[in-house]
Write a protein that binds this DNA or RNA. Sequence first.
DNA 1: TAGAGTAGAGAACGTACGTTCTCAACACCA
DNA 2: TGGTGTTGAGAACGTACGTTCTCTACTCTA
Lengths: 181, 181
Amino acid sequence: MDHAEATTRLLDAAERLFYARGVQAVGMDEIRGASGVSLKRLYQCFPSKEELVVGYLRRRDLRWNAALAESVARTEDPVERLNAVFDWLREWFTEPGFRGCAFLNTFGELGEAPAIGAAVRAHKEALRTYLDGLVEDAGMPESLTDQLYLLVEGAIVTAAVTGNPDAAEQAKAVVAALLNH
Amino acid sequence: MDHAEATTRLLDAAERLFYARGVQAVGMDEIRGASGVSLKRLYQCFPSKEELVVGYLRRRDLRWNAALAESVARTEDPVERLNAVFDWLREWFTEPGFRGCAFLNTFGELGEAPAIGAAVRAHKEALRTYLDGLVEDAGMPESLTDQLYLLVEGAIVTAAVTGNPDAAEQAKAVVAALLNH
DNA sequence: TAGAGTAGAGAACGTACGTTCTCAACACCA
DNA sequence: TGGTGTTGAGAACGTACGTTCTCTACTCTA
């Protein structure tokens, strides 16, 4: 097992465990057991738990954004794509093990740590930038971006707390009102 | 110092410390020091840390709801009251030490614990019920409640992560569109 | 005032965790 | 093949924390 595969395995285990149970509830020894990577190697790949958490967030950021973009891109009409965002959210909400936004959860837990806060903000900024592109392609006023963003965040949080994926449809209804306005 | 005052002091210290730094980052000994209540008494009032956390959430729920309702009630017009919700949110966002929703933060940290999850859901349900009353008083269709709720959650989360209170105004703009629709 | 119950201060206990260290096994290369 | 460097397994270390225990001092009552 080389360095790259060890890193992948560690991130796989970290993502699964951290997302499901929170960062502080999962020890480095459990990451070692779940990944099959020795503690020595673990600390070679990630010199501290905080760096492993940042690595986890960074990779999840890339994956999450890519999954959203890929799903939305299957819709042709640029205006309809704004709705497609919430269709994808609904799919995500119904996935087994959905526990809300990994970034918000980690932020609530470790927001003090500057590296964590930076990773969370980077993720949210990337989302906002992506939405901005969709709004521009749809020929809508720029002010719609922040409003869409609020609805996405609200839907994620609500679905996480209530366990009910209908928040996606409710947000979509608001989008429809904004577009018709 | 009697039992009631000890309880109050403990909840005061717990609320300040837990909200500012998270639950897991604050030890029982620090609560003792900040409250001036002995460990023995602490464990008489709250037999475990989890019960102290639940007590903290419950009292914060009452206070937060009351502050919102009191501020909104100063507005006479029932329709205008829907906007007043977001005016109050903006005030909250600009308070020193604002760190987002205590309930969401705790949920992200300890959502597994059933008692915590229940306290969080109770708070969110109370908020939704309150919004439902405002919507009814304003003579608006019931479907507006969930939409308002999404906007409130989205604004809180966004203000917390970005540190920018403008999320309140952005949400308000969406409300205006929904009302004009 | 004597005694019984209680409170406070803080030591103590058990556990868990992040991180480092030890040591035996093994791979690679001269 | 012999020696050197690296690896993995897991023990060890230091710390922190939730919770309980000890002991002293005080307070109330008979």
